[in-house]
Design a protein around this nucleic acid. Structure first.
Lengths: 321, 321
DNA sequence: TTGTAAGCGTTATCAA
DNA sequence: TTGATAACGCTTACAA
């Protein structure tokens, strides 16, 4: 491994001069600086990250924590983060798994964006107390070192329900999500609020868990229970796709016998036929805003919580009844 | 920040004793060790990664380099890697972008898996020369510190063509991929070889670039050129989906007017109707095998290049003519 | 069994 | 303008 020591020896200067030259410090003359740089390049010198991190107490690396890598919209989300951060000289690494939770206290990364239920509120608050900067996308957490960038789930769920009602639906199933996750809880609460405003409409909740198979199961149950056309609000798109799958093996048709609206506008929703009506939001923007907030926290600038707005995407999966 | 110094002071021992205790070295007595551990926990001590990395010259972190985060099958691939590596005490981080290319020479990571055309062969060979361990999934590169785990593209493309021929197709379009990427080149070569073995069959190449829009463009061209039923081998699924999209706005039907087979069996291929025929392989296994190879390289065990095998998935997008 | 001390590769302070 | 040197937090011979 070639270190500044090697360069110093070869250039006949001290290591401090090398360090200054390498870091563009104007104290060292153009001449020596050029010579040192040339030698550094010749020797293929690359600074050792550990040594620098140890001394400078920062890595210029930020982490994003995901529960796993399977999420259907991570691509755009991460892209939004990366583009925002790289402009400011920060690198982004994607972390998932128990050991990586230590990256923050270990000072491997300078800050983190959280979209990972497996990290507890307590753990995050503890890090925040230690001075680490965090942006949470999946929970509400109040702390001076934490900023929230949350989806407007309530507006989304309300839009979805209203869309079904506008189309004349009076029997509405709601396929719920996992009990513990923020987005799921928020969406369900909004649905219940909407339900209480519409006593004339028949709302039925079916327990789901945000994965495809629970959509299939729900479809089976719905077909057994009722034969008039019904509407289903799936609290995420993946479950909606599950319903499509189940129906494709029956004579029932989406948008005719069962009307479906989802949430998230994941990529596959663009491909299914008929097109899935859903609630859309910019995943790219979510990542970008989250990153901006993190940079502000790190720069000790004031931050306010942000909200990501949502819109309805209409599709032939919901038609007039 | 709490360091071993703080613990040493509080425990009334030297820092080396603390270090030994923390690392479970049996030289230190149960008693003192227990006391030190207790204090460490009390103070919420977390070892500083930079300091340890600097000293030990390893991080127990491996990187996987991706061109971007948008790949349709990254989820399973990464999952395969993570599950394999975490068993062996390694953490995986996902890196994308210019600066992260330095993670290897900076010694931020102990090794890397490459699926990223933006890294040049020269750069990788240079790292390998410096002693860094690499596994490449997207090119052929011979070096003692590099192991290849490649898709059997040739078998896949041959299978696809044969499937079309078996179904009676005699006019076959081939929608190609970007000129520079390994998988694309390999697949096209295999197609040309198959073509030379079947002079009776009419092969036509259309230039594509692995993204959806080139499928749409190709569909337009194909419909303009020919009206008898034709077959198309799309060198990846994404372009095949593009054809579906284009046809959905016409009166032509997949599996009837245009027969399509893809490559990769990405998630959306499961959702489209009719089901897309395609070439499948285990993304999880690809990641897992790649990881195993990397661990072997790091342990200085002998490695041989590996191949990931492929199979045909039939679908109603290709029917008998 | 525990302590002393050197060293990992940088940065940065102070003196020359 | 450059050089000597301490320090960052940790590991690990070697000494006690």
């Amino acid at each position: 491994m070639v270190s500044i020591k090697d360069i110093a020896k070869k250039a006949g200067v001290s290591i401090s001069t090398v360090s200054y030259a390498l870091n563009g410090n104007p104290k060292v003359t153009q001449e020596t600086s050029a010579r040192i740089l040339a030698i550094a390049k010749e020797l293929n010198y690359i600074p050792n990250a550990a040594a620098r991190n140890l001394k400078k107490r920062e890595t210029k690396i930020l982490g994003v924590f995901l529960t796993d890598y399977s999420g259907a919209f991570y691509g755009q989300l991460l892209q939004g983060m990366r583009e925002t951060l790289s402009q400011k000289g920060y690198e982004l690494i994607v972390c998932s798994g128990k050991r990586s939770h230590l990256f923050l206290p270990e000072r491997m990364i300078d800050g983190a964006i959280i979209l990972d239920e497996t990290l507890s509120d307590e753990e995050l608050l503890q890090y925040a107390d230690l001075g680490h900067k965090l942006v949470v996308l999946d929970r509400e957490l109040d702390h001076p070192n934490i900023s929230q960038v949350l989806l407007d789930n309530k507006a989304g769920a309300t839009l979805a329900i209203n869309h079904l009602i506008d189309k004349g639906h009076r029997k509405i199933y709601v396929l719920t999500g996992p009990k513990g996750t923020y987005d799921s809880i928020q969406r369900l609460n909004a649905v219940r609020q909407a339900a209480s405003r519409h006593p004339d409409i028949d709302f039925t909740e079916i327990e789901g868990n945000f994965i495809k198979s629970s959509g299939e199961k729900a479809a089976k149950q719905i077909l057994e229970e009722s034969n008039q056309p019904v509407a289903v609000f799936c609290l995420n798109d993946e479950m909606a796709i599950g319903i499509y799958d189940y129906l494709s093996n029956t004579d029932y048709k989406v948008g005719k016998d069962i009307h479906i609206i989802g949430f998230d506008n994941i990529e596959v929703s663009n491909y299914v036929h008929p097109r899935l009506a859903t609630i859309d939001y910019s995943k790219w923007r979510w990542g970008a805003v989250g990153s901006e907030q993190l940079l502000k926290l790190i720069a000790n600038e004031p931050v306010e919580h942000e909200r990501i707005y949502v819109t309805v995407i209409e599709g032939e999966s919901v038609t007039n009844i």
